[in-house]
Design a protein around this nucleic acid. Sequence first.
DNA 1: CGGTTCATTGAGGGGGTTCAACGAAAGTGG
DNA 2: CCACTTTCGTTGAACCCCCTCAATGAACCG
Lengths: 253, 253
Amino acid sequence: MHDAQFLKREARLKIACSSCNLRQLCLPVGLDPEDIEQLDAALNLRQRVQTGQHLYRAGDIFRSLYAIRSGVFKLYRLNADGREQVMGFYLPGDLMGLGAIGTGRFALHAVALEDSHICEAPFSLLEELAQKIPSLQRQIHRVLSAEILQDWQAMMMLGSMLAEGRLAVFLLDLSERLQRRGFSPTHLHLSMSREEIGNYLGMKLETVSRTFSKLQKDGLIAVDRRVLTIQDMPGLKRLAGCAGESHLGMAEA
Amino acid sequence: MHDAQFLKREARLKIACSSCNLRQLCLPVGLDPEDIEQLDAALNLRQRVQTGQHLYRAGDIFRSLYAIRSGVFKLYRLNADGREQVMGFYLPGDLMGLGAIGTGRFALHAVALEDSHICEAPFSLLEELAQKIPSLQRQIHRVLSAEILQDWQAMMMLGSMLAEGRLAVFLLDLSERLQRRGFSPTHLHLSMSREEIGNYLGMKLETVSRTFSKLQKDGLIAVDRRVLTIQDMPGLKRLAGCAGESHLGMAEA
DNA sequence: CGGTTCATTGAGGGGGTTCAACGAAAGTGG
DNA sequence: CCACTTTCGTTGAACCCCCTCAATGAACCG
């Protein structure tokens, strides 16, 4: 993501799970080469999604999961009075649509924050294949479970942390996910606006901006527009770990 | 739950999925009678968990999912400085442990808020069985997906609603889940304390208490200790729907 | 009955929102 | 190339919801 070279290099490659550099993050994890071939056949539907385009919308009938090959997506919902609520940001190797399996309809809107490429995985085919390939079934379970864990982390942030802590958790999470994908863990490009970050973290864009400024003043990060450098990883982790949770109070059973 | 008669009646019955009145909520959904028998054989491990007892603890090795037959459980985590963070309340028919599938270890503590009965479902057996029974596999996917949806609702509350709205969503969610289980949707017994509710909703127990009082003054609910009656369902839904989200503001793109 | 836990209510303070102004960067059309 | 416009980010000041601290009351239990 945020790397034109990366995009171009990917476009030139034959796009197959077996040759995909995301196979250690995506559905193929734990599969034998011959199984990956079968998987490849099932999800040979590739698509390009340009910045600002929607991959699907809340209410659409669910037929497929979508794996991100490159780019970044924002998942969000619109509440009763039309205001947006960001539910997460998704990176290469992530699967989108997991919340729709149960109901048969997408619950959220998915929009590309950068020019992106995705792989469409028809879910009925995936289920069929999982019936024959135990390791694929296990991986589907793992992926669903991981999404639950990720959501719990967001709930934890929103439920018990102050602005500083939330931003620290957000940055560390992003950093770790980027690192797992082979990007630098300290030099991040933010594909989302301050408003989108704040919306996800349950605060206003002004608060995000102010908190960025404070973290910069404290020497933990350096921000220049949408390029953010983590300068004091342990310090950030300290913020994310314990400090700043629920108004400095120490009470509780 | 919260009904001694219910517990006693259950104890007398032969405890099998095929005769369980939760089979429309739990793992057996969509299974043929003969498949249910196989499922029954796989999870014949029943347990009693008394109020305050832990079913498992964060960090424990994950081997089984746990289905609630009767009672109520609280799932929570302890953060760095030992403070509690409630991640959810689970009712009969719900499955616990879904977040542990990916990592092999439980991420949360599970404690009974009432004297409860659970069914243990060894996950390796479940996976094996799902390999043979497509409808069971589909149900496992559905259950995992439903947990994701439930978590998204919690994120939505925490991220964009004020105390009143959060409490309204909480009560309506509880009401609907109780109704699906055959209980009254308007007359609820709260198995959890104000502090636990507040912790889950990202607010202090005093705020929960004050907000209950306000909702009561407005004629939406009636509260007597841990018995809560919903008196104006549409009014509550109005609160949960749009009102009270992010400081009364109407701006935004 | 005294001790503990839980719930309610009040008063004061703080973190974040709201409203507002300003600046920087990017895109547009002449 | 430069006004013009638009979008995005930053910063300041006032207000408000909720937290904190505190006191009181009700129910449960040994």
